[in-house]
Design a protein around this nucleic acid. Structure first.
Length: 359
DNA sequence: ATGTTC
């Protein structure tokens, strides 16, 4: 079987991570994979590159979706005029969000984790609309620029992990025939985990709003780890946002802006109808910790260059997830714009980023 | 990424 073509969309092709590129090559040689795309946030993952999409005509590859099935971004508009947002007060109010949600049934699947953010790069962040680039479109959507917004990044926690573990134990790395019994069973597991992840983000958003006494409405929820039917085959996205499900928000880092973008259709197929899902890591977790813990105290990182505040009572994580550990979001979105894949609608400024609090 | 974590 010949190697599938690989297309990488990058801000600066000379600076594509060679390790990530080698990982893309590894996936391009899989029997049954016919197209591979790297997005501008491409970076090395644990075996599989993150920021990538993979198309197969007839096979499902659970390990190309990974363990955090259904992980994605939700963006909510609250009813609070942003001028009334008090970060000090909010910081004092945001307690009890790492413990199980009261509404989770004890025997429901993944019940204890439902409504909690988790670790790694997951977060909830209050934001304001910094700048509207496309006024007509923003207004047509009925969005309000003067309100407090809330972004949630989380996934399927232990449930998605259990699904991948189950299929890995059965030897799924060569893929599963999509129409076979195993393929159908995996898809059912995948869809259940993805549905759980969407619900998890909704509950997280509602819990955060409730702590501040706010009402809120979900404006978008998009998955960046998934496999879906696509043009007669199967599209695997590993840290890749969909370009065929409406508006997308692309987070920068806790110290930079997030972009609200509208996917454009004309060149979408070049990128397998996929987009960057964030800025992408510039430094590995261990490098970020090593470099930054030498230069800064953890408390130095509780405020960002944009004036936002950070709640992260995990001393290792606050270094691992520092803005410096991520690529420049403006370059990443610039590459998407340059490739004709998106139009920018608006930029959002982080006001308060919540990672974790000790309980 | 992870009801993780020697």
């Amino acid at each position: 079987m010949s190697e599938a073509p690989i297309r990488v969309i990058a801000a600066d092709p000379a600076r594509i991570d060679p390790v990530a590129l080698e990982q893309l090559r590894g996936t391009a040689t899989l029997d049954g994979i016919e197209r591979v795309v790297g997005l501008p946030d491409l970076h090395a993952g644990r075996g599989i590159a993150v920021g990538a999409a993979f198309w197969s005509p007839d096979r499902l590859f659970p390990h190309l979706v990974g363990s955090d099935i259904g992980c994605g971004m939700a963006l909510w508009e609250t009813d609070l005029p942003v001028r009334k947002f008090r970060p000090d007060k909010a910081e004092r109010s945001l307690h009890g969000l790492d413990t199980p949600w009261e509404g989770a049934g004890e025997d429901s699947e993944g019940g204890a984790a439902l409504g909690t953010i988790g670790g790694g790069n997951h977060f909830a962040e209050f934001q304001r609309i910094e700048r509207i680039v496309d006024d007509a479109r923003f207004n047509a959507l009925g969005f309000r620029a003067d309100r407090l917004w809330l972004m949630v990044h989380s996934g399927s926690r232990g449930l998605g992990q259990a699904v991948l573990d189950h299929w890995r134990a059965r030897g799924c790395e060569g893929g599963l025939a999509a129409t076979g019994a195993d393929g159908i069973a995996y898809l059912a597991d995948h869809d259940r985990a993805a549905g759980w992840a969407v619900l998890n983000r909704e509950i997280i958003a509602r819990r955060f709003c409730a702590k501040l006494g706010l009402a809120g409405e979900c404006r978008l929820d998009i998955l960046h780890n998934s496999v879906t039917p696509h043009r007669g085959g199967w599209l695997h996205r590993k840290g890749a946002a969909p370009a065929d499900r409406g508006l997308v928000v692309i987070p920068g880092s806790r110290g930079d802006f997030s972009y609200l973008v509208e996917p454009l259709a004309d060149h979408a197929d070049d990128a397998l109808h996929s987009l960057a899902h964030g800025a992408g890591r510039r430094w590995s977790r261990s490098d970020a910790h090593a470099k930054l813990s030498r230069r800064f105290k953890a408390s130095d990182l509780e405020r960002t260059a944009l004036g936002g505040r950070v709640i992260c009572e995990d001393r290792r994580l606050i270094f691992e997830e520092a803005p410096e550990a991520y690529k420049d979001i403006h370059d990443v979105v610039g590459a998407l714009v340059g490739a004709g894949l998106v139009r920018v609608i608006a930029l959002l400024r982080p006001l308060l980023s919540y990672k974790t609090r000790r309980t």
